[in-house]
Design a protein around this nucleic acid. Structure first.
Lengths: 233, 233
DNA sequence: CTTGCAAAAATTGGATCCAATAAGCAATAT
DNA sequence: ATATTGCTTATTGGATCCAATTTTTGCAAG
């Protein structure tokens, strides 16, 4: 037999498929924050009933990606600037720690993979792909840490702020800086210098966080000014 | 109008009530790990259909408290010893950090509350209440940190291992030690010594984790020996 | 007595239907 | 003109029903 067998028992249920699709759409920013997700509309999009849609929405809410009010539906969660700041601070605590565990265990294959990811990120011009490639680079370095729980928590945290990160990369010199910082982190990993790699990662995340918060504060101020000038409420 | 109004819109839906009840039952250890949760049975217990039950199970799975296989139902998640070790290590990283942020901001009321919690924990003889009281003490100290995201992550992490903690408190001198360590942490907080409080918290969590892992390893070895001696598979 | 297997029962995932609630709109009173 | 009330529609939460899948049971053969 020359068949590529796939484990049908492990195939995704409808609610999982919908959950994944919505999660990706939200983290990519394809769904605007504050947008309400109508069960019926999503059900028609996937050609299913509302049952699996509601199950997917429950899981998204548990991840903090949507917010639900009874009988009023689910809306894509919006983060305040302070919440974004906190999540970057949080990542800046966890990710260096994971990397510290990981550096000594990085296999040659893994370093090769990280190197490729780093290069792909550095040379990609389509900004809509930057989120994925950034994620690939960081996670490739964390994979060998032997800390699945840490990794899962970091993934959730990044998932919450990823939609805002693109703005930071596009609207400033963020992309150029990220390229350099990724290269430096990778170099430290290759030299098995865990402390340097961890310190660079912490600074990388904190810098991106500060830059992003700056952008958002300025946007807020601009918006507030406009409202005042036009006399809107 | 002299009516005590309560926000009916914020009242819990059936799926939330069921979710909370199951979450508490699992973290308390009232449901054994590996036990399968039948939708129909739970639905009858709460006098509802299976729909809200399934929604609750989805959310529990997202929290890692149950594990689901398609068409085979949900079972209470079991953690390996290594996973438990990792989660304690994780808590030992996060909780001192939260406390560091919190110490300088602790209000007199909050210190009073923490003091009461500490005392209640120290004097409670009913071991089934230790989990709640331990949680109350720690969280009262974290409340003022102004880091809701950290706090939520810590709550999830503790929720995963709480069921094992009782064993640690009961089967060793864990309770006596915990009493002392809590008192020391509280004292450091009252003196606004953030670094000492953080260090003590880290050691407190690491010690409990090591003690728990020891217990579980011994249990495992005893079990394995028994199986060998009786010739069971 | 054990093993293999087909039918029956139990269980889950999902569709359809119904009741409860919110949101929008028209009619009325002030 | 505006605020209040009642009606209509849209939407959600949940119940009931059906199909797909797993698990158990009964029975025959070795």
């Amino acid at each position: 037999m020359k068949v590529k067998a796939t484990d049908i028992a492990q195939m995704n249920s409808a609610s999982e498929v919908i959950y994944d699709a919505l999660r990706v759409a939200i983290t990519r920013g394809d769904l605007a924050e504050g947008e309400t997700l109508r069960q019926d509309r999503i059900a028609r999009m996937f050609n299913v009933s509302r049952i699996p849609v509601r199950e997917a929405l429950m899981r998204l809410e548990e991840q903090g990606l949507v917010t639900t009010q009874r009988y009023r539906g689910a809306v894509v969660s919006a983060l305040s600037i302070e919440e974004i700041r906190e999540i970057f601070e949080f990542r800046a605590l966890l990710e260096p720690e994971i990397l510290r565990y990981s550096v000594e265990r990085l296999s040659p294959d893994r370093l090769e993979q990280a190197s490729r990811s780093c290069h792909l990120f550095a040379t990609e011009t389509d900004s809509s792909r930057w989120g994925d490639l950034n994620r690939d680079f960081h996670y490739s370095l964390y994979q060998d840490a032997g800390r699945p729980y840490y990794l899962q928590v970091v993934k959730t945290a990044l998932g919450r702020v990823e939609r805002y990160l693109r703005a930071q990369l596009v609207l400033t010199d963020g992309m150029a800086r990220a390229r350099q910082e990724h290269a430096a982190i990778l170099a430290a990993c290759m030299e098995r210098d865990a402390e340097t790699a961890a310190r660079l990662t912490r600074e990388h995340i904190l810098a991106a966080g500060r830059s992003l918060v700056d952008i958002l504060v300025r946007q807020n101020e601009a918006h507030a000014t406009m409202l005042t000038e036009t006399g809107a409420p």
